[in-house]
């Protein structure tokens, strides 16, 4: 495809630092200060600021693990794997629940911040359920 690649790999990435869970609290506090000044009608501004701020400043090991695990499940689905969860499925929510347990277990073993899992869970389940219920139409903007 001829994409131009930035950098040549992760080894050269010296800006990457793993943040600790206690730092998460500082970031949440600073964000609360910010949200005081939000004009709620500015939906675009809110979304553009809140989500990148949260993710860019959240601790690495905890926050991004659910995303990686979600990706690994998505990849397996792409490759026609994960048949256990699917063939046991009777409904979209059942399949979403079963595959979420994989993420939850991995996150729990690694001590992921529970408040982040609370946000990730509906996001993951909504994604899986919409794919199961709508097929390729799940991708279209509502």
């Amino acid at each position: 495809m001829g994409h131009s690649k930035r950098g040549s790999g992760f080894a050269q990435n010296d800006t990457f630092k793993v943040k600790k869970d206690d730092e998460m609290l500082d970031h949440q506090s600073s964000l609360k200060e910010f949200t005081k000044s939000i004009d709620k009608k500015q939906a675009k501004k809110i979304a553009r600021i809140v989500a990148p701020h949260m993710i860019a400043t959240m601790p690495n090991g905890g926050a991004k693990l659910p995303i990686y695990t979600g990706l690994s499940i998505g990849y397996d689905l792409y490759k026609g794997k994960r048949v256990t969860e699917i063939t046991k499925g009777e409904s979209a929510s059942f399949v979403a629940d079963e595959s979420w347990k994989v993420i939850e277990n991995q996150a729990s073993e690694k001590g992921v911040n529970k408040s982040l899992m609370k946000v990730c869970e509906p996001a993951y389940k909504t994604t899986i359920e919409s794919i199961i219920e709508k097929g390729s139409d799940a991708y279209s903007r509502d």
């Binding site: 995303i67 990706l71 946000v119 996001a123 993951y124």
Partner: peptide
């Protein structure tokens, strides 16, 4: 898949 997942996240 990732686009949908990130959107919802």
């Amino acid at each position: 898949f990732l686009t949908l997942f990130f959107t919802n996240y």
